[in-house]
Write a protein that binds this DNA or RNA. Structure first.
Lengths: 162, 162
DNA sequence: ATGAGTGCAAAGGCTTTGCATTAGG
DNA sequence: CCTAATGCAAAGCCTTTGCACTCAT
């Protein structure tokens, strides 16, 4: 898994950062906004997450980057999360997983393998997304709920486990 | 929150168990299918979950039922999960949460409060659900993914936190 | 120099497991 | 009686925190 993401679905409104340099600048800006700097460790974490087209667990981040201390990764992920650079992905199956925030990468969803726990990214067509948002907003209002965003995961069996 | 669920959305295909006696029988059957009995502890857990219209955390289950041992709750939740009676709800914010499986209660989604972490149930209209399923199936096939089901959470601020 | 960031190690907190006891067939 | 479930307590495991050291400004 993680090798085959769908053929670049639709393009989104706030376009994702693809260029490494642009990404770094964007990240630095967001960090500065909360009074933090882009350090070597933080850069390494961001690059690891950017390189993967799926959410990574702490162990994965630790092994990908060179010699990062576990505590530093945890601490910096917290900082990056506050800065809106990374987002914690809910999985609950094993470890916490992290990915670059949707403001940086664009809105997307996850393919979660119920056998091996692998998580991959997917984008759904804009029109489906729009219809869904419209319906959810109605429900939210009805429930006295101030809707911020939604999470949609596709649970099933990945190519590798079939 | 948790007080106000939407006015009984649409009815679903495999209808949910509402009657306590029917529920107990259904649970017993499912347990028997995996070689397990419906014990007092298990009954207490199921009743606690059935009474709430939202996923409960272990502490909540412990306080609701009378004098249950923590380890028993954990162990029996695992058994009930294997039997397809309860499902673990992903939250990752604090504790694991559990609810009766959708085979028992019907397909639904969650309203997750980003401020207080409360989780409540919601059902979305059948037609929206159908459209969504259709779109997701296409994506899944395209990704070589065998789609089993989806998870959809509405994240926002609940009535109590606004 | 001076405060932020880093690393190692120890502590925390939810969850799991071992083992003796008790309940059910 | 004999297997299965329960409860208490201890162990596990991911995550967080304390503290001294290092780096950048």
């Amino acid at each position: 898994m993680s090798g085959g993401h769908p053929p670049e679905g639709a393009s989104h409104a706030h376009q994702e950062t693809t260029d490494p340099a642009v990404l770094a600048h964007d990240v630095a800006t967001r960090l500065a906004a909360v009074g933090q700097r882009l350090t070597a460790t933080r850069r390494a974490i961001v690059e690891a997450l950017a390189a993967a087209d799926r959410p990574l667990s702490i162990p994965e981040i630790l092994s990908s980057g060179a010699g990062l201390a576990q505590s530093s990764v945890y601490r910096n992920l917290a900082v990056l999360e506050r800065a809106g650079v990374v987002a914690r992905v809910i999985t609950m199956d094993e470890w916490a997983r992290f990915e670059l925030s949707e403001e940086l990468t664009g809105h997307h969803h996850h393919l979660v393998c119920s056998k091996c726990g692998a998580v991959d990214d997917v984008r759904i067509p804009d029109d489906v997304e729009a219809d869904l948002d419209r319906a959810l907003e109605i429900l939210a209002v009805r429930a006295g709920f101030l809707l911020q965003h939604h999470r949609l995961d596709l649970v099933g069996v990945c190519r590798a486990c079939r």
